[in-house]
Design a protein around this nucleic acid. Sequence first.
DNA 1: AACGATCCCTGTTGGC
DNA 2: TGCCAACAGGGATCGT
Length: 277
Amino acid sequence: MPELPEVETTRRHLAPVLEGARIVDVTLTRDRMARRNTRPVDVVDRLEGRLIGSVGRRGKFLLIDVEGDLTWVIHLGMSGRVRIAENPGEPRETHAHFTATTDRGPQVRLIDPRTFGFVAVFTPDELATDSLSLLGPDAWEDLPKAPTLHSRLTDRRVPLKALLLDQRELAGLGNIYADEVLFRAGVRPDRLAGSVTSPEVDRLLDAIPVVLAAGIESGGTSLDDLAYLLPDGRAGEFLSQLAVYGRAGQPCRRCGSAIERVIVAQRSSHFCPRCQT
DNA sequence: AACGATCCCTGTTGGC
DNA sequence: TGCCAACAGGGATCGT
């Protein structure tokens, strides 16, 4: 599941390929992938022939500056990945629904079997009215200070994990890294947000950059063959470092207790019953 | 307003 | 072996 570390890894691969390049051809073979634009054809028309500026990221969204005051948005959803084909002649992958060819040769492809991801090209007005504008601070670049986060938690009756997953509160954490952060902070995912103490807030804010840095350093988490891969086709290597996600029944790496799995906020959640309270 | 539930989509998995 | 229901989940949307 592409989360902040996977999207950041993708961004770092895309930047040298796209920045300063001109898009010479765009193909969209599945309209659903462009559903955020009023007309899917806008994605093609607004990219073709245009010069690309900086490749940025906010939360799990890639935000790419395009000549003409446009913003090219890519979201990977749950099964999306970017593939950089050095030669546009390379056979098109199954589920490669969108391609953009640069004047330098390489081709950027968006592959997404479940099509929960999307690609859009927004004018400033469209960007401002899209739900993108509701995104909270980026968990990597713009992590809030303890008093700010604590004030967002007080009086909230949702499970803490639900709040960590809410992209309007904090942008970037998904199901895997939320579980990993909660383990490192020693807090259960089903704890009510309003019950989190000051020391626990401090531990959460300490844990977030550590977990995200490790994920980025490893190139993200590739769960299986279907899942996320780096734009060069390699697998991310964070899977082997996961403390709790996907480890139900296995011994906690810290205390040896069996990792438990429960449903919180309609998502599978993994935690150590002894290390997390 | 806050919160929970449901839906979208399809490859994979597990039960019979 | 083959069939099929259940499952995975980010985010939008709807109901309470």
